[in-house]
Amino acid sequence: MRRSGVRTVVGALVAFGVVALGWEVFARSGSLPPAITPPVEAIAAALARMIGDGTLFVHVGYTLGRIAAGLGLAALAGVPLGMLMGRFRPVERFVLPLVSVLSPIPSLAWVPLFILWFGLGNTASVALVFYAALFPLILNTWTGVCSVNRLWIRAAESMGARSGAIFRHVVLPGALPFVIAGLRQAFARGWIAVVGGEMIAATRWGLGWVIFDSKEFLNTDVMLGSLAVIGLLGLGVERLVFAALERRTVERWGLVRRTSA
C-alpha cells in the first residue's frame, strides 16, 4: 500500500503548522524573555535581513566550499585507497588496522588539535571534513570491491578481458553502489564536522560560525534562522544530489531498489 501524496503533504503541513503555532504561543506568552524565544516572524525577518545584505550567501558559500573541498579531497584519497585495499591483500593488511583504530574517533575531538596544527580558519575546517569523510569512503569502497560478484569477473575473463579492462568495466561499476553509499555517509558526517568545526575553529564566515557568534549577543532569531538553513541545505543536498546520482546510475541498472520514505 503506497502512502498517497496528498496525505503526506497534508500531514507535513499540519505538523509544521502545529509546531509553528505552538512556538508562537509559547514565545508570545512571555514565560521566557523574547530575546531567548523569538516569535516566528522575528526569525523570518532575521533571515530576510541576512538575505538582503547578502551575508547569508557568503556564509552558505563558505560552508559549502569547505565541505566540497574536504569531501573532494577525501574522495580523491579514500576511493583509490579503498580500491587498492580490495584488490591487493598487503594494502588491505596495512591500511585496515589504521582505519579501524581511527574511524571510531569522532572528528570533532580533533578540533583543538587541528587548530594548533593548522591555525584558525579554512584549513582546519577542511581538514576536519576530510577526516570525517575519509573513513566511510574507504570502508564502503573496500566492501564494494570485495563484494563484486565473482561470476561477473569470470564471465569477463572468459570473454578475453585483461585485468585493466576487468577493473574498469566490471569492478568499478560493480562497486559503484557502495561508493555512492559511502559518499552519502561521508557527506552526512562531513556536514556535522563542518558545522561543528566552524563553531570552534572558524573566523568570521560560515553557518556554524554565525550560530556560535550569535550566542554572544543573544541573537536567537539569527541562530534559529541559520539552523533552519543548515537543515534545509543538508536535506536538499541529500535529496537532490545523492538521490539524483543514485537514480542516474545504480538504480537504473537495478543494482539497488529505492527504499520507501
Partner: peptide, 27 residues
Amino acid sequence: AEDVLLPLVSVGNPIPGLAYAPLFVIW
C-alpha cells in the same frame, strides 16, 4: 501519528545535533 510526526522527524534527522548547542546553552 505517522502523517504528522514523520515530516518533523525526517527534517530534524539530518540537522547536525551540535548546531543546536549554542541554542541549548542559551536556553
